[in-house]
């Protein structure tokens, strides 16, 4: 059953085809226009989506070697995300659904990230734990079964990726901050600065990254720009270490609490090599397996939406033509 997945929740325009066994294509077009503004500008994101959505979908079909008539369903991100961006994907999906006479399936973006792990590990079976870390989200989710989720913890302020972007701005490395900080950190000392790790209450699986960002800011305020430039490798490494320490420890707490042996990572921050190393090292004594999707499935992509949509359609569930964007859609 070929499902087209459309994802336009933020600044990536993506389309993919998944047939229940194989991801036949996964086209992602990242909008670079936002770099000039140091962050995603919603109106510009919407403008870019409507401009390139058709060629992106056509390329997804071409690469899959399929025609529109081979599709049996259109899966599309309904939320969470930017309302105007979500609207473009939803409107196009409804048009395709109407013209092809096939159902549209509204998919939760965060659930999509969970499914991205299945695409790289087809044998992955619940129960397992997922840590979603991206520019917009930081959540620990227990997958009791496909379609049955419990949120164990979430960020109380900034998402982890957001903290990378904000610190990236402070260190003047451009947007997005994640890859640039990771690169700087390779040449810096992670113990050069003692930045706070917010573990919150001992039992809590929630996250908080705004204090860390403020600590970096305070450090910079005490000095001039020349000092910042000559120390930023160490600042980047120390900041990154503080983030990945918290992420790894909380994931480990959660796995212990739930008795899980599999921890999956999802979202854009999971491409960070230091994070992967830190978590892999942490789970060794616990005999816990860590799974990561390949980089193209970590960031926002239509493949994960197609996979989630396939699951729902195969279970006989689809959406009506009246589905609307849900910018703060939650699940579980």
């Amino acid at each position: 059953m070929n499902i087209l997945g459309i994802e336009t929740s933020c600044d990536d325009t993506s389309a993919a085809v998944y047939d229940g066994h194989c991801l036949k294509s996964n086209i992602v077009s990242t909008q670079i226009v936002h770099r000039h503004f140091g962050g995603v500008v919603p109106e510009l994101a919407s403008r870019s989506h409507i401009q390139i959505i058709v060629p992106v979908i056509q390329e997804a079909l071409n690469q899959a070697g399929l025609a529109f008539s081979d599709l049996e369903g259109i899966a599309v991100t309904q939320g969470p995300g930017l309302a105007g961006s979500l609207l473009v994907g939803l409107s196009v999906a409804k048009g395709l659904s109407l013209s092809l006479g096939i159902p549209v399936i509204g998919v939760n973006h965060l659930e999509g990230h969970i499914w991205s792990n299945m695409l790289d590990n087809p044998d992955l079976a619940p129960p397992f734990l997922v840590l979603i870390v991206s520019g917009g989200h930081t959540q620990l989710v227990r997958v009791d079964d496909w379609g049955k989720y419990r949120i164990l913890g979430r960020t109380r302020d900034d998402a982890a990726g957001e903290a990378f972007d904000k610190v990236g701005k402070l260190l003047k490395v451009g947007y997005p901050g994640g890859p640039a900080i990771e690169k700087l950190a390779l040449e810096g000392r992670p113990d050069a600065f003692e930045f706070p790790r917010a573990f919150l209450d001992k039992e809590s699986l929630d996250f908080s990254f705004s204090g860390l960002k403020t600590a970096v800011l305070n450090q910079l305020r005490a000095h001039d720009e020349g000092w910042m430039l000559s120390n930023r490798k160490d600042i980047a490494a120390s900041f990154q270490e503080a983030v990945v320490d918290v992420l790894a420890e909380k994931a480990l707490y959660a796995a212990r609490q739930e008795g899980d042996r599999i921890v999956c990572i999802a979202g854009g921050v999971s491409v960070n090599q230091r994070f992967r190393k830190r978590l892999s090292d942490a789970v060794v004594p616990e005999k816990i397996r860590v799974l990561w999707p390949s980089p193209s499935l970590c960031t926002d992509n239509g493949g994960m939406i197609a996979a989630a949509g396939h699951f729902y359609l195969a279970s006989g569930k689809s959406s009506s033509l009246s589905i609307s964007p849900m910018p703060s859609l939650n699940f579980a």
Binding site: S91, V92, A93, K94, G95, L96, L98, S99
Partner: peptide, 11 residues
């Protein structure tokens, strides 16, 4: 409107 039109026309 244009998103819906594009989806319809494409299909």
């Amino acid at each position: 409107g244009l998103g819906l039109a594009k989806g319809l026309a494409m299909g």
